[in-house]
Simulated assay, not measured.
Amino acid sequence: MKKQVVPDTLIKVGRQGARYQQKTYQANERIHGTTQEALEEYEEVIVDRSAAEIIDQINRRVKSPYYSLYCGIASLIFLFIFYPLSIILAIASLIVYRADVARKTTPLFYEFSDEYSEKKFHESIMSFSNLAMTKTSWRLKSKVAVSDWKRNAGSNASLIRHRSKIGKQNPNLIKTNVDVWGVDAGSIKLYLLPDRFFVFQDGVYSAIPYSEIQASLQDMEYVEQDSLPSDATVIGKTWKYVRRDGGPDRRFNNNRQLPIVQYGVVVFSTQNFIAYLIVSSLGIASSFTQSFSRITASSSTPTEPLPTPAKQFQTALPEVNLPPEHLEPLKKAASEGSELSTSQIAQLLGVSSSFITKNPVSFDYEGFRFVRSGRSGRQISWKVEYLGTGV
């Protein structure tokens, strides 16, 4: 059998983008003596590749089987039949496993064509190292509405979150010559590489150009029932079992007071991908989204203006075509100077409450301006101003 030579991948990153090259080897046949014995030599050839071809190669290797698994199963079977053979098979399993890892691993070697590209990559690493200074982070997996808020510390939604780790990472079955920073959140992992933003999910890799990814910020009020991170901002207190007036429900003996904290939610999004990272420090999350957005904006066309910090918070609501009669209650509230709760506004505009609460000060929509004025019970209250346009 011919020995399989894994090609080395060279990625040249420059101001104009990334260029992908691979070393492949073509065999030259040579006849020796009268025995017609075929010997082979390999000549190194440089071939241009695309990013999609490189990712496809990585995933083919990642999904290829571990042959050491079969040796391990055989070793367990012979453990009860013939012990000495089981020991031999166990050693063989270790040797085959190392060969499996080498066969499945893709080497990626990066080379910077100019100082600009190298500086931009180091700035990206710095932004993630600053984000890693937060005490605790989680990946938001799902959000479920709850109806019995009295037994859920006054909350109308429950989150399922997974503890994550921000910092230097070792990408699964990828070997590279640069430091890799990112987020390890269990079933999904995010890796920062010089050419693209790598995502490992469901056992395969995908790579997102930096010009296509956006990092935005949301703030979240959360009733913390686990240990309280030292950098979290406490904005209030509630009870695990709460009455309508906010006091403790004394029917429960194990009722305890819980802190209400304000976390930052960093949202990584493209047209086909979105991931939510909850960060215990809202200030660190805000600083990260601003710096990372400037870096990704510089990866697109040079004429694009960089986003200002104010726009990072002022996220636009999705466009919804509503008939005028749906907005009459808003006109009435504006004319009377009355205030509306988040849920009331969400119902009138046809959007979710989260799209509204991520605006910390105010936002304009459908010809109205909504300004935070305080709290009404468990919800944020908003003053409504009619601008006279867009309706």
Rank of each mutant, 00 (worst) to 15 (best):
P84I: 05
N130Q: 14
I274S: 15
T303F: 07
I46H: 12
Q347S: 06
K165N: 15
L79C: 04
S298Q: 12
V234Q: 11
E336K: 14
S293H: 12
I208Y: 11
N152I: 00
W149Q: 00
K12S: 12
L131D: 10
L94R: 05
S293G: 15
T106C: 09
G374V: 08
M1F: 09
L349S: 01
I73T: 04
I213T: 13
L349R: 01
Q312T: 10
S343D: 03
Y241L: 02
S352P: 01
D179C: 10
V45K: 10
A285R: 04
L387G: 13
M220I: 13
N272A: 09
A99M: 08
K311M: 12
Y66Q: 02
K12H: 10
S142V: 00
I166A: 15
S343K: 07
L217F: 13
Y241T: 01
K135S: 09
L140P: 03
K143A: 03
L10D: 05
R372N: 13
I87Q: 08
I278N: 03
Q347D: 05
L282A: 06
V279N: 10
L85K: 02
S187C: 03
L340F: 06
S124I: 08
I87V: 15
S86H: 07
F370P: 01
A310M: 07
I81P: 06
K119R: 15
V351S: 01
Y67M: 06
I166H: 13
F363P: 02
W382K: 02
F109C: 06
S75P: 00
E325S: 15
A99H: 08
S287T: 13
E40Y: 11
